[in-house]
């Protein structure tokens, strides 16, 4: 390294690393979809106060928010093979698991982490929908399911969108932790590149810029989405 922050070298790094942006995005989007489903399930269980499952949901949200995502990923990565061994009593299932790519474990760990946060967001959003709405639907003879999915959820979704976008941005940044269990996404690739070329400063500057620009794109997207979704709020407030 004779030249400090050589622009040609920076461009080379950029060309190499931009190929890994889709992997990071895929991991983030996939995790987001799964954690939305998980959070929705947990929220409904807590909202309806289902006897035991609702309590389990409470405990899950408490733990999911109190644990660093790093530890959740490690628990998924090291814990599931042990769990399977305990259930089957042999080492065979662990052998089977070694065929699963580590990115699946990363997605699972991040899903558990994000799901807990989203469950709290959904709970807040549901509370912000007027109680009279549910009463009105039930009084006109809708079943609880119809009322929830047709009337309550669409309104709650509007409230939840800004916070969900925020959570997605957090998740996008959180995917960088996946490299700890040998997933080669943007940050993992950057690490390999940095130690191969012994050029830490340059590589991490480029990586930071890639993450930064991705975040800014999604921030803009979220604000457009929020503006469009809040149409009915703007109309009623006029």
């Amino acid at each position: 390294m004779d030249n400090f922050l050589d622009p040609v070298f920076l461009l080379e790094i950029f060309e190499h690393l931009i190929k890994y942006v889709p992997i990071t995005l895929g991991l983030a989007v996939g995790t987001m979809i799964m954690s939305c489903l998980l959070a929705l399930m947990v929220t409904i269980l807590r909202y309806k106060k289902v006897p035991i499952l609702g309590k389990i949901g409470d405990i899950y949200v408490l733990l999911g928010r109190a644990l660093p995502s790093m530890i959740l990923i490690y628990l998924a990565f090291f814990g599931i093979p042990v769990l399977l061994m305990a259930v089957s009593g042999t080492n065979k299932s662990a052998m089977l698991l070694s065929g699963i790519p580590p990115i699946a474990f990363a997605a699972l760990g991040l899903t558990l982490h994000t799901g807990a946060y989203l469950a709290e967001i959904f709970r807040g959003a549901l509370q912000s929908v007027n109680v009279g709405q549910t009463e009105a639907e039930l009084s006109i003879g809708m079943t609880w399911n119809q009322a929830f999915f047709r009337i309550i959820l669409p309104q709650a979704a509007v409230f939840a969108t800004p916070m969900m976008a925020n959570q997605f941005l957090n998740l996008l940044k959180g995917t960088s932790i996946a490299f700890m269990i040998s997933v080669i996404e943007l940050f993992g690739a950057a690490n390999v590149l940095a130690s191969n070329n012994n050029a830490y400063l340059e590589v991490y500057i480029v990586t930071a810029c890639l993450y930064w620009s991705t975040s800014i794109c999604f921030e803009k997207l979220a604000s457009v989405l929020e503006y469009n979704l809040s149409y009915f709020k703007r109309c009623t407030s006029k």
Binding site: L169, K173, G174, Y200, T207, A208, Y211, S215
Partner: peptide, 13 residues
Amino acid sequence: FIRGTPFLVQLYL
């Protein structure tokens, strides 16, 4: 910048 990049990247940087 701080809000747009992962903590790990800042740490390594």
